[in-house]
Amino acid sequence: MQFKLESRTIAPMVSRATCEVLSTMLDIEAEAGEPYLENTAPANSEGVVSFVGLAGPELAGTGSLHCSSRSACHLAARLLMSDFDSVNDEVLDAIGELTNMIVGSFKNEIEQHIGPTGLSIPTVIYGRNFSTRSLGREDWMVVPFSCGEEHLEVKVCLKGREEPCAHIRHGEKHEFILSH
């Protein structure tokens, strides 16, 4: 049976991967919200965004984690058992590593259906007035999570290499633009 890149199959994988990493590494029980598709550039935001690329013979894409500066400091504090009042290199490193683990866990599940898939090294961005934009036309699957008072979003954008299903549209190029 052919595996289809659909919201109803991707979102539960994202939820499981994120909850497993937050529970195991941070001892945080996160609650997944209602997933949704995003196909326009989000409004300018503040905070931390981390990206990890996925690529394999069947599929290419990106996984990302988005959160406020306060949430980033909270997550890093739980991971490293230190206090952080503001975003610094340690916080950015921690968020990059969390993203790597979340996207890695997601990859480990999805590659059971689509075969071996590789991960890129994480890229982390921090700022106060920036937007991220994909030049492709694919939708982003967004899964919001609540961890007490903190909130984060995990987003995945995937493109099948040969026969994309109706939910995933082909794009010509996939990169990010930052504007300040």
Binding site: M25, A76, L79, L80, M81, D89, E90, D93, A94, G96, E97, N100, I121
Partner: peptide, 12 residues
């Protein structure tokens, strides 16, 4: 590990 965070966690 290229992540200082993971090196710190492993040490702990």
């Amino acid at each position: 590990d290229d992540s200082a965070a993971i090196r710190k966690i492993l040490q702990r």
